[in-house]
Each structure stands twice: as structure tokens, then as C-alpha cells.
């Protein structure tokens, strides 16, 4: 309780400090370059100078924090990836050579590509289907809320939920895990799902699909509603059936949104960590890059060189999407 009080006090102090900074720097700027009550040329010169400085006063705290927490680390990680475990000695590409010869790393790359293929595709697919179906029924919004709900649940919480579903008891005893109960009800042997190589990856992916479908659904549902009704009406008049309208009229008009959903989930998948850590911690050939990186960060007292090298690989995989996003944003701004 005492520490919660401390948190609230810090919060108030932080907000007040921010407000004081913005207010104070503005006041000082106006005092140094006053424009009110000065005559003609002097006033307009002062106004010009203060208008050139003010944006940077507004931006400074945010830019400073982003530089320390996001921009500087990118360069530092690249630099560290060419150094040994302590970050002192330059080792050239040794970390990268080690990486590509390391079986665990190759396993992680393979698994990450599996995740990349399956999770964005399934989440977008289910999201699209649910968005299209729920738009037609009166209780659609309730259905959407329930399917959207897992978005609020932490990856660790979701892992516990699903670990319970995958729970395994020896054959012959009563299964308390839902999946094994269903399997045994159909007369098959119960399985320890988490320990079956290759397939266990898909059981882990199911968790992320379960979480992310709601996200895809919300975005795609809005996009579907944004489709001009005339196009659908025209198709109806031309005698198109429901499937034709959906696949030939509606889908082509929301390709852009589908791409955005797909790439957003792709980035999330590249960083997937909590689920693997909580469910298997990379055992039974389920290792992924982010968990491997975390592992090396602390393994044997911490190997910063190898950890950073793995982080750089994750970054490189993100770069194409980053470039695509920036180009889209630039296009958007020109349109304004």
C-alpha cells in the first residue's frame, strides 16, 4: 500500500514536472524574445525566432526519451553484436558465425518462419470471416465483444488458460484438460501435446491466433462497413450471389486494410516471447528468436554479444515492414 502511494505521488510529481517544464520554457522564451509591446521590425523578428524555437521545446522531452530508449539502443546493439560476451573485445563476425552454426538458432529461425506463415494468416482469416458474419445478425456486437475479449488478456494469462486446455493425464485416468477429454471421448489415446515436436509449435500458435483474431476482426469490420453501398447494390442488381459479392466486390476494396492487419500481426509474431517462455521455455523444439535472445542475455551470467546478434536478426526481419509503413505514412501525409 505504501508503495502504491509512492506510485501515485510519483505520477503526480511526474505530471507536474512535465507541466512545469512546458510552462516554464514557454515563459522564458517569451521573456527573451518578447513580441508583444515591441514595435514593428523588432517584434516580427522576435516572433519569427520564438516560432522557430518553440516546436523544439514541445518536442524535446519526447525526442530525448525516444533517443535514449529506442534509437541509441539500435546502434548500441549492432555495435555489441560485433563484440564478445562482456562487450569489451572486438570479435568481428564471430557471433554471427556462431549463430548460423548453432542448431538452436536454426531451430528458432525455422519456428519463427512457421509462426510467420501461420499466425497472421489464420488470425486475419478468422477476423475477416467473423467480421463479415457478425455484420448480418442482431447479436453481432455481443459476439464481437466476446471474440475481442482475449485482446485484453496478457500472454502469460493466456498461456495458463491454454496450458489447462492442453493438460495431460496418463491414459485411463480422467482427463481434466479439455483437448485430451475430447480426444479420449472419440476413443483416441490422450497425448502430452506440448512434447510432440513440430506439432507443439502449432498448439502454441493457437494461443496467439486466439488473442489476435479480435484485433483483426475489429479493424476489418470497420473496413467492411466503409465500403460504399452502391458497389454492393450494383452487384446485387447484376445478380451476384453472396459469395461473389464477398470475394469479388468487398475483399478487393479492403486489400489495403488486410495488408495493415497482416503486417501488424507479423511484427507481433516476430517478437513473440511470453507464450513460449511460459509454455515450454523453448523445450521440445519450440524455441523462437525472442526467447533465445532473452535466454542468452542471462545464460551463464549473460552473453551480451550473442544476445545482441540475435536481436539484430529480429530487427532485420522487421525492417522491410518498417520501410513499407514509412512509405505509406508519407503517401498519406502528401494526401492531406
Amino acid at each position: 500500500m505504501q508503495q502504491l502511494l509512492m506510485a501515485v505521488i510519483t505520477m503526480v510529481a511526474g505530471v507536474l514536472a512535465c507541466a512545469a517544464y512546458f510552462y516554464g520554457t514557454n515563459l522564458i522564451l517569451d521573456l527573451i524574445f518578447p513580441s508583444k509591446g515591441r514595435s514593428g521590425a523588432k517584434a516580427s523578428r522576435n516572433l519569427r525566432i520564438s516560432n522557430a524555437i518553440r516546436p523544439w521545446l514541445f518536442l524535446f522531452p519526447a525526442l530525448f526519451a525516444m533517443t535514449i530508449y529506442l534509437i541509441y539502443p539500435v546502434f548500441e546493439s549492432v555495435w555489441l553484436s560485433f563484440h564478445d560476451r562482456t562487450g569489451q573485445t572486438f570479435v568481428g563476425g564471430a557471433n554471427y558465425v556462431w549463430m548460423f552454426n548453432d542448431g538452436e538458432f536454426r531451430q528458432s529461425i525455422f519456428n519463427n518462419f512457421l509462426w510467420l506463415l501461420v499466425v497472421p494468416a489464420l488470425a486475419t482469416f478468422f477476423g475477416l470471416i467473423i467480421a463479415a458474419l457478425t455484420d448480418r445478425i442482431w447479436w453481432g456486437n455481443i459476439a464481437k465483444t466476446l471474440i475481442f475479449m482475449p485482446m485484453a488478456i496478457s500472454f502469460v494469462g493466456a498461456s495458463v488458460i491454454w496450458k489447462f486446455i492442453y493438460d495431460y493425464r496418463a491414459a485411463g485416468t480422467e482427463q481434466i484438460g479439455l483437448l485430451n477429454a475430447v480426444v479420449t471421448a472419440f476413443g483416441f489415446e490422450p497425448q502430452a501435446w506440448m512434447t510432440i515436436p513440430l506439432w507443439n509449435n502449432f498448439f502454441l500458435m493457437a494461443i496467439l491466433v486466439w488473442i489476435q483474431t479480435g484485433f483483426a476482426m475489429v479493424i476489418l469490420s470497420a473496413a467492411l462497413r466503409g465500403i460504399p453501398e452502391e458497389t454492393v447494390e450494383a452487384a446485387v442488381i447484376d445478380g451476384a450471389n453472396g459469395f461473389q459479392i464477398f470475394f469479388k466486390i468487398m475483399i478487393p476494396q479492403i486489400w489495403g486494410t488486410i495488408a495493415v492487419v497482416w503486417t501488424t500481426i507479423t511484427i507481433l509474431v516476430l517478437k513473440v516471447f511470453d507464450i513460449v517462455l511460459a509454455m515450454t521455455n523453448g523445450q521440445w523444439q519450440t524455441q523462437v528468436l525472442a526467447n533465445l535472445m532473452f535466454d542468452w542475455m542471462f545464460r551463464g551470467g549473460g552473453d551480451f554479444g550473442r544476445g545482441a546478434a540475435i536481436a539484430v536478426v529480429i530487427m532485420l526481419l522487421v525492417v522491410p515492414i518498417m520501410v513499407w509503413n514509412i512509405r505509406n505514412a508519407a503517401k498519406e501525409m502528401k494526401g492531406h
Partner: peptide, 18 residues
């Protein structure tokens, strides 16, 4: 800012820990 939206946290962990 748009670029930084997608920078993986993993890049920041080790430098910030140091």
C-alpha cells in the same frame, strides 16, 4: 516516429540493461 513504432524491444534490452 512511424519507424520507431515497430522497432523490436529486443534491440533495446541489452543496451539499456548496460
Amino acid at each position: 516516429v512511424v519507424g520507431l513504432l515497430v522497432v523490436p524491444l529486443q534491440m533495446s534490452l541489452i543496451p539499456l540493461l548496460k
